[in-house]
Design a protein around this nucleic acid. Structure first.
Lengths: 231, 231
DNA sequence: ACAAAAATTAACCAAATGGTTGAATTATTT
DNA sequence: AAATAATTCAACCATTTGGTTAATTTTTGT
């Protein structure tokens, strides 16, 4: 019987939703689970081609099951997409606020944030472009969910920057600009991968190495361009 | 008679293509031109929703013409899309190499590049996400065209950075990382607009102001994080 | 071992969507 | 002004595509 879809009704209730997501993660070990094979295939196809670019048949083929199973487990393309979209957001958005609200002095926090968040994006390199494309098409879809996940949770971090700026410990930029700088430096290379591969004349392996180098460099570099050198 | 589509056959020949594009720009003044009204509508819809997300009917409605006219002037959705995609690339990619190859000392060049390129992106804020999404879906489509437009044209600039780095005038990072840093800081805020609007709790007007502030700040800031302070 | 439930499939269906056609209208040419 | 060419449109068409159904196989519970 198909009954686990009921959870979709509670999209706006973070707690229930996150529980469900973790349940799903657990199932990942069970490779034979048709439901998971479908979800995994859907994730790949949706993230690569977007909602409208994805074909149900392609998802079925990738999952090696009959197309009817998609509807048996997920009812409709819209429902399946919503789950993929939701999980994608959960994987990359809440961690931002979480990492930024650790109780650390600014410099340490920056270094740790950049290092750990790059780890997350490296593990989910297709999510940023996917989420931003879908969010751009329809800014209202899951907007409340987004707000739940991050909303005003970064305000304490911005406040921390402002305080350090007052003390003259940071570069003389508004906290919001600094925040956007940091996110840009981390995420954009994953979004613009095909362009940079062309511009920098790299193959997959070469770009992989480029990203690794970046991961090594960026934590210190971000600190250096945010914190004011004591001179 | 429909004859101007012939140019599409020469996609790989930059010169002919650019000529055609400029011809098109000229027509922009002729507001009554159905062909242009269609193209303008197609540009908006494709850039907002992507190839598969766009509906021919929606383009026709936005252009205030009968759907048949789309095919009369552009033959097919694929052909119309290709033109929009191509022009989008032309508007944001070649300028990079062009601005970076002006004969200027590095510091001046950086300041000028960031200022002028931000102007371009501000005038075409939807293009980066659109192009990157389409390029991600199908990295081979117009790949040769891309290579023509920028290809190895940024190598001289990378070389310039390397030379200045040797002389100890820049921060101690590989030239490629510096280049990616600069592009990230400029472009990402346009791509991630819906997320940043949520995170920073801004409305359209507020985000516009944020971008303006950024435009004012960034040229100097980029210089400051690339060039080594003489201390 | 049997019955009930769950999972799976092939064949089909209906709506959406890109595309075509032929007639009607407007503009151009001579 | 007549004839020719270009433009526009309403009605249609064909394919793609998301979705359904009914029958079959597999699993589970007793």
């Amino acid at each position: 019987m198909v009954n686990f879809c009921a959870g979709l009704l509670y999209v706006w209730s973070s707690e229930i939703e996150i529980l469900e997501v973790e349940l799903m993660e657990d199932k990942t070990t069970d490779q034979s689970s048709t439901e998971l094979k479908i979800f995994e295939a859907a994730r790949e196809v949706f993230q690569a081609k977007g909602l409208e670019g994805a074909r149900m048949q392609e998802i079925a083929d990738k999952a090696e099951i009959n197309k009817s199973m998609l509807h048996y487990y997920y009812r409709s393309k819209a429902k399946l997409f919503e789950k993929v979209y939701q999980l994608s957001i959960i994987k990359v958005i809440p961690k931002i606020a979480e990492l930024l609200n650790e109780n650390l002095p600014l410099e340490q926090k920056l270094r740790s944030f950049v290092d750990k968040y790059l780890e997350i994006v490296k593990a989910n390199p297709d999510i940023p472009l996917f989420v931003l494309h879908e969010m751009n098409k329809d800014p209202n879809r899951l907007r409340n969910f987004m707000i739940d996940q991050i909303g005003k949770k970064v305000q304490p971090f911005l406040q921390q920057i402002r305080e350090e700026r007052e003390k003259g410990n940071t570069v003389d930029l508004p906290a919001e600009q600094i925040m956007v700088n940091i996110m840009s430096l981390m995420i954009f290379p994953f979004i613009a991968r095909p362009v940079f591969k062309t511009i920098l004349d790299k193959d997959d392996e070469g770009y992989e190495a480029f990203i690794e180098e970046r991961h090594r460099i960026l934590p210190d570099y971000v600190v250096s361009i945010v914190m004011k050198k004591s001179s």
